[in-house]
Amino acid sequence: MISILNVLLGLGVALFGFVLQTSVGGINRKVVARLQKRRGPKWYQEFLDIFKLLSKRAISHGWVFDFGVIMALGGIIATAMFMPVTNNIIAFEGYDNFFIFVYLIAVGMLGMAMSASGSGNPLASIGVMRALTTMLAYEIPFMLIVLTIIKLSGTSSVSGIAAFQQMSNHNWFAIALPLGFIVSVLSLMGMLGKKPFETYIAPAEIASGPMVEYGGKQLGMLFIMHEITIFIEVSLFVHLFLGGAENIAIFLVKYFLVYTVVNLISNVNGRFKIDQVVTFFYKWPLFLAVVQVIIAVYLGWVIL
């Protein structure tokens, strides 16, 4: 049964996710800087940024502006609490259903979108519109691949899927479903808002989209939310495709590799227009995803 310890462990996972992603994000800034022949910031620069924002005096556009931020951070913390980190570190054993991550994350997104629209800035609404449109684009291929994974492993529990891949005669789904892996990397880039798909941030075009009116503590909280969101998405990827983690060191290595690789890919790309994002995802990734489902589910050609 669920005890207070589980809840504390869940909160610990959320905090761990925040610290981990903020550090990895900082290190990645350094990696990118080296790529561009720069020295780059300190590895803990992202912490400095967030605490600075929390220390500033912000402005508020009314109650929904604040309420949305609280709802956003709350929803994301709640989602992170369900996230398994390794095989043993999991707050709510058996209830880490995949759909919880997809839909509970949406509460956070909705809160942020609500708050952004509540600021009364048209650029924020445009940003939200683009974010939702992007979501419509990348989720469908990704969900089809996840359907295949759930169908093959017979469970929709994220830790269960990881355990399925760790069995001695099973491969990681990254190898078992090669087409699906390609599709899901692309979808992951869409989820993280990385370069070709960062249309909804677009600082030079719509002044950082949903974030246009935030400053100070609200922006700081949204940064925290953003870091935890990335943690959720990347570790979901690690568990679904890279066989989860037996211990924390393996998790850290896999997490760091996934995030860094995606970040490096994104740094050599330009930015799509929003309709290009939609047509891109509905062309090849969707086609590949359908092909993958057919050959994996109906024909049973899986490299296990």
Partner: peptide, 22 residues
């Protein structure tokens, strides 16, 4: 900002709107 002097090593960076900037 770019590799010659790299102001990011001081923790500085460009921002889009006055609300976010220091």
């Amino acid at each position: 900002m770019t590799s010659a002097y790299d102001m990011e090593r001081l923790g500085m960076g460009p921002m889009a709107t006055p609300r976010q900037a220091d």
